[in-house]
């Protein structure tokens, strides 16, 4: 475990080198502050201007859905970039045959970052969330957000062969975060076309206050993660 931790630290050093760590840590906090202090202000301003009771408030839950994914997606993206670089340098194959081993490597690159992102997300949501979810909801929201980060990281490492491609794939794959919008804006059952996206169920869960939707979201995530992980294993074999 000590070796896995050392390998994780090595990754953090690389990230710090690229200023990515900076963006990863600061981005969500800045975003959180914007949401916490900017949005309610904007809401009261808009309500007065447009003479409405509420304007943005019904969508606060949707903001939380995105916010729950933000920290994880950023952190896991940074980790994925490091993995791509290690694949480029062929270091990854070497790490598998050291005391670290394949399992240790995967834990240090995906396990630990997801774990930290999860805790970080819970703290951020607790401080900045506009809907003040209860503890169960908070945990489920954080967990689904973390899964989304993991899914995007895996997509990046599976579908790209270098960092440049990785950036492009990241932009493409963030589209799957948008599933959460559908339950809020689409009444028609056609919205269920997005059901294979875990973000869809997160949005539904938030909108309807339904724990079941969150559980479905987690199940969908697990399927994605398993499939992508098998693909990744094939790629690095």
């Amino acid at each position: 475990m000590k070796i896995v931790y050392r390998c994780f630290l090595q990754m953090m050093r690389t990230i710090r080198h690229d200023m990515m760590l900076f963006a990863v840590c600061l981005g969500p906090v800045l975003c959180g502050m914007l949401i916490k202090f900017g949005i309610p202000f904007l809401e009261s301003f808009l309500c007065i201007q447009l003479q409405k009771k509420t304007f943005l408030a019904p969508y606060y839950g949707l903001l939380d859905v995105f916010f729950a994914m933000l920290a994880s997606v950023l952190f896991c993206f940074a980790a994925a970039m490091v993995v791509l670089e290690e694949t480029d340098d062929k270091v990854i194959r070497y790490l598998f045959v050291t005391g670290l081993g394949k399992k240790g490597y995967l834990i240090s690159r995906f396990g630990i970052p997801s774990g930290i992102a999860f805790v970080f997300t819970l703290i951020l949501l607790r401080i900045f969330s506009l809907t003040k979810p209860g503890i169960t909801e908070l945990l489920l929201l954080g967990l689904s957000g973390t899964c989304m980060g993991l899914i995007i990281a895996l997509m990046v490492v599976v579908f790209s062969t270098n960092k440049l491609e990785g950036m492009a794939i990241t932009k493409l794959s963030t589209v799957i975060m948008l599933g959460g919008v559908a339950p809020y804006f689409v009444e028609h059952p056609v919205k269920y076309l997005l059901a294979p996206l875990s973000s869809f169920w997160m949005g539904k869960g938030m909108l309807e206050d339904s724990l079941w939707s969150f559980l479905i979201s987690l199940m969908v995530s697990v399927i994605w993660i398993v499939v992508l992980f098998i693909k990744f294993q094939k790629k690095i074999a």
Binding site: R6, E86, D89, K90, V91, R93, Y94, V97, T98
Partner: peptide, 29 residues
């Protein structure tokens, strides 16, 4: 792998790091 040392036919080093940094990291594993 504690008892096995491997030298692949291609270079397996962090290209961005120095030789010493590479060796230091790998020996910590």
């Amino acid at each position: 792998y504690e008892n096995i040392g491997v030298d692949f036919e291609f270079s397996t080093m962090y290209e961005k790091l120095t030789a010493r940094e590479n060796l230091r990291f790998f020996s910590s594993l």
